[in-house]
Amino acid sequence: MRTLIIAEHNGQHLNEQVARAVTAAQQWQQPVDVLIAAAQPDALAAQAAALQGISSVLVASDAALQHPTAEHLAEIIVPLAANYNVVLAAHSAFSKNVLPRVAALLDVNMLSDVLEIVNTNTYVRGIYAGNVLATVQSSDATQVLTVRGSKFAAAATGNAAGITTVAAPAAPVGSRWVAEAFNKSERPALTAAKVVVSGGRALGSADAFAQVIAPLADKLHAAIGASRAAVDAGYAPNDLQVGQTGVVVAPELYIAVGISGAIQHAYGMKDSKVVVAINQDPEAQIFKIADYGLVADLFEVVPQLTAAL
């Protein structure tokens, strides 16, 4: 049998997590194909074909795939799935919208946000905000899963896999894309950044958040993150939220500024290589998971740190 990877992209570029999904897919030791569903798939297909470890690229092309809906993608993927016993994608807002729909249409279960592939049907995944690791086994004929990208190295490039066209049924009626709004930023994406600087409720306002966090992030070429408390208080937009209900990151360096370190935040950053915590409260939970803790007034020391870099 074969493994099918559902590739996420923005119309021009493959998401960098696709290469990580390719590495995860090697665990089955069987041919791996990558599906590109796009309005203009040629450049994307070429990017996918270059990934080491894949056998072929499947291309489904339709004008409506400029802004694909989960319904449309499921219509494309489900007929293909007959040839595959594994369907997987890197875990993201894109894949967790689409793959459960695919799994249900195939009448199989799905494993979300898999951290480790133990064998061809057994996985380790986090439950209870990652405070517990569960080993789960699925006896379904088709294994449908999303994998945590940061747990798998990115596959190298240099391959020249074959490209095959597959059918793209028309988009189902009933669901229509209307608009999208991306937060414009010169910064690296949160999930891809080597350094993340995150702010919490202790910043006290959106202005303070911008004035304290942004200059440090600029100096470090870092992505900016936020705790759920900071997001709920309106200091930062929701897509910066790091944690159980936001994004999970694992950068080389994670700097938590004014973040208490609630369970649900720790879930999103505890796999970071080096964690720095700056907080005025010496009892803050964040110090328990930090490599370096500094008990201090953030408004004093963060500008100092920024100036010293």
């Binding site: 569960a134 080993t135 964690v275």
Partner: peptide, 17 residues
Amino acid sequence: NVQQLKVATPPARPAGI
């Protein structure tokens, strides 16, 4: 078709300074 085989506590991060 999905069985939970076992659960475990994730390894704690080593204590920092």
